[in-house]
């Protein structure tokens, strides 16, 4: 009824976000929302979040595989159990921060790789906490 203009005897075409030139307007039109934005859902601290790429299988038991995309939030303080990125001897390293006999150490999630003891190294920095890894199945 609203779309019928009595003075001009013409139908007004309702304005839609999608262009519908013929037929009925989509019943979903009133429910259109923005696309799902993964940035918004995966990243809560965008200004301290960085992306890195995994090479190798040292974290295979944690489900992190070669070529996976890693999302790191540097604003988080690492806690035992977290998977973390560290700078060790001039390289980025990915390990699980673990605790055994009251001693913190970095655990590789692959039996072929050694664990990492802090006391054996001088130059270590925990760089950030891994919040997601993204794996491609194609």
């Amino acid at each position: 009824m609203d779309s019928f203009d009595s003075t001009t005897k013409k139908f007004k075409i309702p304005l839609l976000t999608d262009s519908v030139s013929a037929g009925f307007p989509s019943p979903a039109d009133d429910y259109t929302e923005e696309n799902i934005d993964l940035n918004e859902h995966l990243i809560s601290n965008p200004f301290s979040t960085f992306f890195l790429r995994v090479k190798g299988d040292s974290m295979i038991n944690a489900g992190i595989k070669d070529k996976d995309l890693i999302i790191v939030d540097k604003s988080l303080t690492a806690k035992p159990g977290n998977i973390i990125i560290a700078m060790i001897d001039g390289e980025f390293t990915i390990k699980r921060l673990s605790i055994k006999n009251n001693e913190l150490y970095l655990k590789a999630e692959n039996h072929n790789y050694p664990d990492f003891r802090f006391k054996n190294h001088v130059d270590v920095q925990i760089w950030g906490v891994v919040i997601y890894s993204i794996h491609s199945y194609l």
């Binding site: 960085f50 890195l52 790429r53 190798g56 995309l69 390289e91 980025f92 390293t93 990915i94 790789y113």
Partner: peptide
């Protein structure tokens, strides 16, 4: 390293 997905750093170990 922070703005191009092709150039992000690699974790080697």
């Amino acid at each position: 390293s922070t703005t191009d997905i092709e150039q992000i750093p690699t974790i080697v170990k």
